[in-house]
Design a protein around this nucleic acid. Structure first.
Ligand code: FES
Ligand code: FES
Lengths: 159, 159
DNA sequence: AAGTACTTGACTATTTTAGTAGGGTATTAG
DNA sequence: CTAATACCCTACTAAAATAGTCAAGTACTT
């Protein structure tokens, strides 16, 4: 398995969508600011998420991204698979031919591990994450920070 | 978390030790042949394993490596930690300061995941692996392959 | 005394990741 | 209509991590 910032960013972005896209679509720029993730990098991730059918886009002013379906239907495993090809932990990609065409000593161990991780991440939906108290707290902090930042910018311009 | 061939090789090598070091120490060269892993690369891994106190070395002719303690006391998690610094899945290394000093939206999710993986890998000892039927089968195949290979070399020399 | 086998460190090629740049194209508010 | 907005797409690059090599040791046993 490989879990990198790529997968982490994707889940973070999707969670941001779950938290803020109820009324209107959310633009990548907004997410980029709120989660402090590079805008262009996020765009690449959303291209993958769109291909996987997890999000929907609305173009033009006032546009942005929206989740496809409800938050309880999207699990973390889906998001990671969408941007991070696989959750497989074996060296052989599940083929069992590590050692010159034959299966290696530890193949089944990694296979089991992969199943374990997949099971765990499949059991957690965006709805589960949104429901957590700490997620709510952090989300509120992020909105506040953004507001005071904008406020400061306005004041700076006025001067 | 990052699970790479580094960690996989280490577990494979330790399992090889568990299978063959009962009577005499096993040399890195032997393991290299049996598991088809680069010799010099294995040496690096064993340096880490020795530092972690998982193996013991015997120098000189007939020397090699031996496990420290019995196979039921060494778990897979220990081995991976020894060569692959950590099993942590967060981006921040557990500090919770991903987002400019503050905790990010998904920190707790990755933290939970890390615990899950650590729990799984801590629950599996070398003894558990040795006891598995498929491991026995594969180990036997590896020994046979090596014997016929040596046999062929002897014949080649005779000619 | 000699050979075996561990020990150490530096060094390199390859791959992956994270991020940038710079063009588009569709949509809509005004 | 048109200009601003925001998605869309491709190629590129810097930096890091991995996998593996090389070479010169040191300790020990037969
Ligand atoms: S990991 Fe699948 S055969 Fe080795
Ligand atoms: S992963 Fe720990 S704060 Fe973001």
């Amino acid at each position: 398995m490989r879990l990198t910032t790529r997968g982490r960013y994707a889940v973070t972005a999707m969670l941001d969508l779950a938290l803020h896209s109820e009324k209107r679509p959310v633009s990548v720029a907004e997410i980029s600011e709120r989660q402090t993730i590079s805008l262009s990098y996020l765009e690449q991730l959303f291209a993958s998420l769109r291909k996987a059918g997890l999000v929907d886009s609305v173009r033009g002013p006032g546009g942005g991204y929206r989740l496809v379906g409800t938050t309880d239907l999207i699990c973390v495993a889906d998001i990671i698979k969408a941007v991070n090809e696989s959750i497989d932990s074996t060296n052989c990609g599940g083929k069992g031919d590590c050692q010159g065409g034959s299966i290696c000593l530890t193949h089944n161990l990694w296979d089991d591990l992969g199943r374990q991780i997949a099971g765990f991440l499949s059991g957690i939906s965006l709805a589960d994450l949104v429901a957590k108290r700490d997620v709510q707290t952090i989300a509120n902090r992020q909105v506040d920070q953004l507001l005071t930042l904008e406020d400061n910018n306005v004041r700076a311009k006025a001067c």
